[in-house]
Design a protein around this nucleic acid. Structure first.
Length: 1064
RNA sequence: GGGCGGGUAGCUUAGCUUGGCUGGAGCACCCGGCUGAUAACCGGGAGGCCGCAGGUUCAAAUCCUGCCUCGCCCA
């Protein structure tokens, strides 16, 4: 091993870039995996981002947590392979292409050509791949992007097909309807985020409709904002617990506005709470009853013949539904099965006929009503209202203002429309899902138990098909009479194509590398067992299905890599934003449960959202998006990563404050670098070899043993915090250690030890200690902020820190701990601080020494007296036990004990304690005879405090060791002697001259010529101190004069008298 | 409308599980000190209806109830 190089200044960006280069040249990432080849695997799965969006700061956050766990586990000795992945299918891709090529409807796409369109999609997927690569590399996210899994690759699709077939064979796949927001103008249904693009406030007619009961004169009143759904009405829903009433119109209404009405004597039924809201007539209440009494009653259809009853027994009857409320309407919900999600679910549940009254073109189908057939539904509101009015079925109309989703492309209102769709029967495996979820270690646990658990308890069947073009095609072929085949591999497809060809179908060729996308797969026609032609169901899969298959499809399982599932499944760790709870976290579990009947991942870290510094969501439109490069190019990736991890718990929302990154840079990294620089510069100068002349720890001074012990303690706690997912606490503690213990105390106290030019034991001890602590800090920091510490570690140890071993597991790897030494040093530091506080209060300059200092109480600090004398600027430190000389006692109540004993009398007892004489009371307490305010007071009820007597400057602090609180006092002697005054004066002058030297930019070694003028008020400067002054300031030639200095001399004041000096 | 989480100093936050001495820290601000020690450090100061309102208790930031508010997810 050779001596380290001198460190140079810290330039984070240049340093990180040079390290990136070094990693590339040395293949450090690959080596970090290879040298763990024999280790136990730790399986990480990368959630695939889509590369057709630019990466943002939130991706940096997620990748930091992915990376740090993988690096940590690697250092621990696990084999952690990291395959990159890309999500390349789905709606966002199609929308991008549609916008670019102005293809605003399905017809336009078909006209353009589906093949060409999909080709455009395939290309557009990679728009930002380079930006992603650069970001990943710059932030040091180690992942294999050269061999990623890609959801559009045939291998991936084939594996997904295989998975679907498993579901199909388990009867978990079925065809049904799903009510979706649909735009008849473009012929497409919309996902929720597209819907969100198009909400508009509109004013529309709403109607209160009278549904005449079959065997009763009364009508039930129902309300709807979509009159066009009324011809499709097949049922009325009431709340079983809601109170309804039957009322009779008792008077004609005056000032009737709009169409509709009711005659005197007519009877209607509605929720009691909404009576005033709805009725425009004076009415008398005939009866009141719960909704359950209405259930089963039949009524006369509004548009007879519009819907075919079919097998349904419940059509045009009242049913009960728990979603019915009395917040608006009449407390009765008109149900048209195909045009509302609640309606559809209710219809399925109670058996209403599932029949469309509206076509895909948005117009009524033939046979509804002569005035409606073939007309666009939104043009029919008026006609329908008139028809109802004419047949006395309308009670009233009311204009209604609400937000309603509109097509973001055409501006037309969307229709909620029941579409053919394929589902995975998740409801059938609900119990297994819950069971598996219980086995997952969630961070934080409330996401698993709460948000995710809640979702699973209410799990619905998963609608996995989309009427789109760019995606994994649904591999189900279907004949007109409903025979179905699900294809699970290319080989099977080829086989089926051959079979069909043999039966006379003319299919295109189906080679081994057939592109599994549309429209190619659409062209294959298969043949059923009974000999009918089968066509592919014209859907693609929800792209969430793709990513849900990633854990096996990334390996092309089961066609290849069987061992990846037998040996490397379930996954050990995944990590994504909390918004993935019902996204990727769910689809992974859904697929693994339905296909493998297994848990999918053992640990899941769910990250909080990233917000701007004001707590607002980052969005392009608000312009508050933080570009990661702003910080990569300024403070660097280390500071960005460390900031993000220390800013809060990973699952809490992160308010990203650019100033926080700067602060991290200035405090943690700059400090660490300067500690390193301090060590490296002297080590380089001295030719220090960390492997030579190692001084055993027990032979090193207390200060060294202390910092080594602290380092051990911090390292162990760091590991515990990591295991508990408390990365933020771990890193905050480490940061505190580096800044306060290591830099501000150890290095500050050790500085002079390295100044000595000759080698000695003390210097060697210090250098080895610095080397060991720095190396340890590097290892601990490496997973979180991998750059700078790699530079430090490599320079000190010759190889990358990322190839080093995590220092925690084996006992011998950490320096010895000495907790009693740690707590003593803590006391020493507190005493040093206390001394400064005493001086401020006593108005005594820090540089003016005190003759004596006494430590009263506490453990033996003999070995630290020298440090304390220096820190406190006291000539002589001693320990004394005679408290009374400096102190008197005070009693302070222990409220916890007294509260239990005295309850409501506590205030009067407290009063009694504070007014009693402490000395005699304490004697009584010890004798067991103390009684105050009627209560017996024992030594447990009070705490004894010692307070300094006047005449000494003193302060008492509490020192805790082994659950015991000890009072320790520091007393300073405040008298001033000529010797002390001289010393203090010398220090003040030295300080000024040193500052001047610094201002002049003088080298540390350089000599100066010095003249000092003392005036009348100054204390005498003794010979010794004058010599010391010359020595410290390297004043080769020095003169001491009396009087006022010339105009070109420097002037300053000490205790109100002036001093002049001049440096040449 | 439902579920989950948050609301503590100008800002970022710790403390809440298990109630108890004066609610702790960092940034920024002011005063002082210290420094051949770095964008550092130390002491002091100012700055807190601990979201609001009730309840439990001798005692509530902490436990309970309701509300307000912000965020996310779902309707």
């Amino acid at each position: 091993m050779v001596a380290p190089n001198a460190a140079g200044e810290y330039d984070s960006v240049a340093l990180e870039e040079s390290i990136m280069k070094r990693w590339k040249e040395n293949q450090t990432f690959a080596r970090s995996i290879e040298y763990r080849r024999d280790g136990k695997p730790f399986i990480f799965l990368e959630g695939p981002p889509t590369a057709n969006g630019r990466p943002g700061i939130h991706h940096v956050v997620a990748r930091t947590y992915k990376d740090l766990v993988c690096r940590w586990k690697t250092m621990e000795g696990y084999l952690v392979e990291r395959k990159g992945g890309w999500d390349t299918h789905g709606l966002p891709v199609e929308i991008e292409v549609q916008k670019r090529l102005d293809l605003m409807s399905n017809d336009a796409i078909m006209e353009f050509g589906m093949e060409k369109f999909n080709e455009e999609c395939r290309n557009s997927v990679w728009t930002y791949e380079d930006a992603w690569r650069k970001m990943s590399e710059r932030m040091a996210f180690w992942v294999d992007l050269d061999n990623p899994y890609v959801t559009l690759h045939n291998d991936f699709i084939e594996s997904s097909w295989w998975a679907l077939k498993q579901m199909f064979e388990k009867d978990l796949l079925y065809r049904g309807y799903k009510v979706l927001p649909y735009c008849p103008q473009t012929g497409t249904s919309y996902s929720s985020h597209e819907v969100a693009l198009g909400y508009k406030e509109v004013e529309e007619p709403s109607v209160y409709v009278k549904f005449k009961l079959e065997d009763d004169d009364a009508s039930i009143l129902a309300w709807t904002t979509t009159p066009w759904t009324l011809p499709g009405n097949v049922g009325l829903a009431v709340g079983p617990e809601v109170t309804y009433c039957r009322v009779r119109i008792s008077e004609e209404a005056g000032n009737w506005d709009g169409r509709g009405g009711a005659k005197v004597g007519e009877e209607v039924i509605l929720a009691k709470d909404l009576l005033k809201e709805v009725m425009r007539h004076h009415v008398e209440i005939i009866s009141e009853f719960p909704g359950s009494e209405l259930v089963g009653k039949a009524y006369i259809p509004l548009f007879p013949g519009a819907v075919d009853r079919g097998e349904s027994k419940t059509a045009w009857t009242v049913v009960s539904a728990d979603f019915v409320t009395t917040s608006d309407g009449t407390g009765v919900v008109h149900t048209a099965v195909m045009y509302g999600e609640d309606d559809y679910n209710l219809g399925r549940e109670v058996g209403f006929p599932e029949v469309h009254t509206v076509g895909m073109d948005g117009a009524f189908v033939e046979g509804i009503h002569s005035e409606l057939d073939g007309k666009y539904v939104k043009d029919c509101d008026d006609i329908i209202i008139n028809l109802l009015t004419d047949s006395n079925k309308l009670y009233r109309e009311k204009m209604y203002v609400h937000d309603y989703p509109h097509c973001w492309r055409t501006g037309h209102p969307l229709l909620y429309y029941g579409m053919e769709s394929w589902f995975v029967r998740m409801t059938a495996v609900k119990e297994r899902l819950l069971e598996f979820n219980d086995q997952v270690e969630w961070a934080p646990d409330w996401v698993g138990e709460g948000r995710f658990g809640e979702w699973l308890r209410n799990v619905k069947d998963w609608a996995i098909s989309r009427e789109r073009f760019w995606g994994t095609p649904l591999p189900v072929w279907r004949s007109e009479d409903g025979e179905m085949k699900c294809i699970g591999s290319i080989e099977e497809l080829q086989h089926e194509v051959e079979k069909a060809n043999a039966a006379g179908v003319e299919n295109p060729t189906c080679p081994d590398d057939v592109d599994l996308h549309r429209p190619i797969v659409d062209d294959f026609v298969l043949i059923s067992e009974s000999g009918s032609l089968m066509k592919r169901e014209p859907f693609v899969m929800d792209c969430w299905f793709d990513s849900g298959c990633a854990f096996f499809a990334q390996w092309h399982y089961p066609f290849e890599n069987e061992d990846k599932i037998t040996d490397a499944f379930p996954i050990d760790y995944i990590c994504e934003g909390v918004d993935q709870t019902r996204g990727w976290f769910y689809t992974l579990l859904a697929v693994s449960t339905t296909v493998f009947d297994s848990i999918c991942y053992k640990r899941c870290l769910s990250l909080g959202l990233i917000l701007d510094k004001d707590g607002k969501k980052m969005s392009k439109s608000k312009g508050n998006v933080v570009d990661p490069w702003d910080h990569f190019n300024k403070e660097g990736a280390d500071s960005s990563r460390w900031y993000m991890v220390t800013a809060g718990a990973p699952w809490n929302p992160l308010k990203f404050d650019p100033d926080g990154v700067r602060e991290t840079y200035a405090k943690f990294f700059l400090t660490l670098w300067n500690v390193y620089k301090f060590h490296a510069d002297y080590a380089a100068l001295d030719g220090f070899d960390p492997e030579e002349d190692i001084l055993p720890v027990e032979k090193r001074p207390e200060l060294d043993r202390w910092i080594l012990s602290r380092a051990s303690t911090v390292a162990k706690e760091y590991q515990n915090q990591f295991i508990n997912w408390d990365f933020h606490k771990a890193c905050r503690d480490l940061e505190d250690f580096v800044i306060n213990d290591f830099s501000n105390w150890y290095v500050r106290r050790s500085r002079r030890r390295l100044w000595d030019e000759a080698t000695n034991d003390d210097k060697r001890a210090c250098q080895h200690t610095l080397h060991e602590v720095l190396s340890l800090v590097c290892k601990l920091t490496a997973p979180v902020a991998p750059f700078m510490v790699d530079e430090i570690y490599s320079n000190l140890n010759g190889d990358s820190v990322h190839l080093s071993h995590w220092p925690i597991q084996d006992e011998g790897a950490l320096p010895p701990q000495d907790l009693s030494l740690e707590s003593k040093m803590e006391l020493v530091r507190s005493l040093a601080e206390t001394g400064r506080r005493i001086r401020v209060k006593a108005k005594r300059r820090q540089r003016l020494p005190c003759n004596e200092g006494w430590i009263v109480g506490g453990p033996d600090l003999g070995v630290f007296h020298e440090i304390l004398a220096e820190e406190l600027n006291v000539e002589n430190i001693s320990t004394v036990n005679e408290l009374d000389k400096f102190q008197q006692i005070e009693l302070s109540p222990n409220r916890k004990m007294l509260g239990k004993k005295c309850r409501q009398d506590l205030p009067s007892v407290l009063e009694a304690i504070s007014s009693a004489d402490p000395n005699s009371t304490w004697e009584e307490i010890q004798a067991g005879t103390c009684k105050l305010a009627g209560y017996e007071i024992t030594s447990e009820d009070v705490e004894l405090r010692r307070v300094e007597k006047s005449g000494f400057a003193a302060e008492t602090i509490t020192f805790s060791e082994n659950d015991e609180d000890l009072d320790v006092s520091l007393v300073l002697d405040m008298q001033i002697t000529p010797e002390l005054a001289s010393k203090g004066l010398a220090r003040d002058i030295i300080r000024r001259i040193q500052q001047k030297r610094k201002d002049l930019g003088l080298d540390i070694e350089e000599n100066i010529e010095l003249t000092v003028w003392l005036s009348d008020g100054n204390p005498e400067l003794l010979d010794n101190d004058w010599k010391h002054l010359q020595n410290e300031t390297r004043a080769g030639a020095a003169k001491l004069e009396l009087g006022t200095g010339p105009n070109d001399s420097e002037e300053f004041e000490v205790d109100d008298s002036k001093i002049y000096f001049k440096v040449n």
